[in-house]
Design a protein around this nucleic acid. Structure first.
Lengths: 109, 109
DNA sequence: ATAATATATTGATAATTATCTATATGTATA
DNA sequence: TATACATATAGATAATTATCAATATATTAT
């Protein structure tokens, strides 16, 4: 239970940076090489490399070496893990009402 | 464009902590007061207060004062922003193929 | 083997984060 | 008004993060 939160949190952490969100957006058009991606940013090559490492270590992005180049693509299954977590959240959210007496006992005592 | 990534990234950041994900999960059952939530964690009251501030400032959670208690609930619209980002990503992801010659020109020269 | 190109790693740094203890603020009750 | 309770804020700290310049590694072409 706790562990599940932790694993989703680490994926979310990988997505909690604007540069990496833009990378994900770029990759949603299909596989891309690092050098082409770099042109879309005003960051240095080591910084892009760092972000790609974050994304691949999170499992959200797959990396493969093609000769001299690195090609990256989205791992849709991993992305779906996140989506289904939030959809679960929504499902239960609908049914229940507020417990208006949630704290009364403790306060009275 | 950049700004959009930044605003989504800040929502993602609010969701990139296991404690806060558990809070979201708890709130998915409906509105909860802080004191009841605290029982589900092994953190101190100030730490919970800190996390609730993160969540409310991100817009994901609404807060209202009910006498002596704070009651929190999910703002589903804001949470849906996250899901729809993932769905956008997925939509475009399907259609395109890999550009196998992405870097050839530069390397040849 | 050398040179050129693409990417990764290292080391440094400034900024941010999650956590605690101690204290302050706000609200209801005796 | 004084007390008790719920929550927030302040201040401190250890850990993590995003970034860069410099350098290393890997791959291909000459």
């Amino acid at each position: 239970m706790e562990k599940d939160y932790r694993s989703i949190a680490s994926i979310m952490k990988a997505l909690s940076d604007p540069t990496r969100l833009k990378i994900i957006d770029l990759l949603s058009d299909g596989e891309q090489c690092a050098c082409n991606m770099l042109e879309n940013f005003s960051i240095t090559q080591p910084t892009l490399s760092y972000h790609m490492k974050m994304l691949t270590e999170s499992g959200l992005v797959r990396a493969r070496k093609d000769g001299i180049w690195m090609k990256y693509s989205i791992d849709q299954e991993k992305l779906d893990e996140v989506v289904s977590f939030f959809q679960q959240t929504r499902r239960t959210n609908v049914k229940n009402a507020v417990d208006k007496n949630c704290c009364v006992k403790k306060a009275v005592k």
